[in-house]
Design a protein around this nucleic acid. Structure first.
Lengths: 258, 258
DNA sequence: TTTTTTCTTGACGGTGCGTCAATATTGGCC
DNA sequence: GGCCAATATTGACGCACCGTCAAGAAAAAA
């Protein structure tokens, strides 16, 4: 139809088209059932052309992962816009990340896989770089919240620590809690804990451990939750359609160890 | 060779033989390169017989995951045997889990995957049950440390909390930190944090957040580390052979927020 | 020895990944 | 317009992998 004139917009647009179709296929079935042939069959291009955009299946997965990280970046951007303390912003980021994990579970776990040799060894240079960029951008939001708390005077770094370390701990802790919550709430076995609620409790524990003031109980009353339910209204509605509600923080058991 | 007499020991023994060969193949290459044909080719049985033991590839992976969990269970058993406070035991369990993740990375991540529909929907009933049993056993060790701390008087549960919740947070936090550490220390991108060391810092943060006494600095001096290096001597040597050292806790930056 | 039961085998169908020679499309040139 | 070169597209092909199953082998029973 239109060869030779693909070098710019066209290419980007078809990239998106392919990724969007792939995402649809994932949502219809699941990630493991996605195949390059299936993608090619559901798109007005042939397999060869698909391989012109993604050098391997792993590269496609990397593309989907990056797609997801862009969604998170957008959620984080909105979280950064709320009115509130550094601690409020940590809460907002956690909320956003949990929202993402519940809405896009496959892509959430792709984020881990993208760091694994089996993926990144077969991804294109271009997409790997984008992956690092996006990671940087996400971590930047966390760092910003940490530094806000420091300038507010609510957080004093312990000797030998820097903000990056703090950001790392916040990230790792949120990831762990959300991963376990996301897994446990959809797998067989005993369900002894309200996992989604515990995500926020865990962040509170970390913050308390860091000596990050004010203490946890502030979350209950503060108007951040209402702000969040406003800025994430469409995402929350999408979640409700899937039968999942996220009315956790209001009933969050609080750790009042001032 | 010997049909009809397979109903008991024979079957178990071949199960192990198959799993052991599969583990060898994984260590030679990697998890993704493992295939049922390859396994059958490296074993004195045919593919059909392999499928007599594992109803699908996913079932084999589940078997490998269980294998790994048994290793962890063994490490945890040894950790439970050390002399020390509840906090020391948490430290020891963290140490053991990190050791496991570094030595058997693929199996560590299989533990997550085993909770994902794409795996557990195709696993055999038998192996799924065993998986839950093992999970129970591992969590039991964490619970035990929590309850030891409570009876010692070092940990007082906040109102509305129970030991299971505490164990969940310890587990999720350790998992997150170790996962991120394991991933980041073997993938491209900036390396701004000594990830392995931070695993212990993160646990300290959680403990501090829980109000779990005594405060963190105790780890540095306590004789637990020496005990650990004794009971995990062979594992540490195996790790060194791979060029990874685990001399972290001694230089662990301590959070002294009593 | 023969029959029956149990276990093993590997060839086969179906699917997925990635390649590449053949084909189609377009821009430039005469 | 007609022709050439450069580029994009196609889908059939080779290879690997998963899971099955009819045919066959081995042991126990008769």
């Amino acid at each position: 139809m239109c060869p030779r004139i693909v070098t710019d917009e066209d290419r980007q647009q078809r990239d998106r088209e392919l990724l969007d179709t792939a995402l649809e296929l994932i949502q219809q079935d699941n990630l493991t059932s996605l195949s390059m042939d299936k993608l090619a069959a559901n798109v007005p291009y042939s397999k060869g052309t698909v391989y012109n955009h993604f050098c391997s299946k792993e590269d496609l997965l990397l593309g989907l992962c990056n797609c997801g990280m862009e969604i998170v970046a957008d959620l984080f951007d909105r979280a950064a816009g709320i009115q509130g303390s550094g601690r409020d912003h940590v809460f907002a980021l956690t909320y956003a990340y949990l929202l993402y994990a519940l809405l896009y579970r496959d892509q959430f776990f792709l984020h881990v896989q993208s760091k694994t040799p089996s993926l990144y060894e077969k991804g294109s240079q271009e997409r790997l770089e984008r992956n690092l960029q996006l990671e940087e951008r996400l971590l930047g939001h966390v760092l910003q919240a940490v530094e806000q708390a420091i300038t507010e005077g609510n957080l004093q770094l312990k000797p030998g620590w820097d903000s990056m370390q703090v950001a790392f701990h916040l990230w790792a802790s949120a990831f762990g809690a959300i991963a376990v919550a996301s897994i446990k709430s959809q797998s067989p076995g005993p369900m002894r804990v309200q996992f989604k609620r515990e995500v926020f409790n865990q962040m509170a524990l970390i913050l308390d451990g860091l000596g990050w003031k004010p203490s946890t109980s502030a979350w209950k009353a503060c108007p951040v939750l209402q702000q969040l339910e406003t800025i994430y209204q469409s995402e929350l509605e999408a979640l409700e359609k899937q039968g999942i509600s996220l009315s956790i923080p209001a009933t969050c058991s609080q750790g009042e160890n001032a």
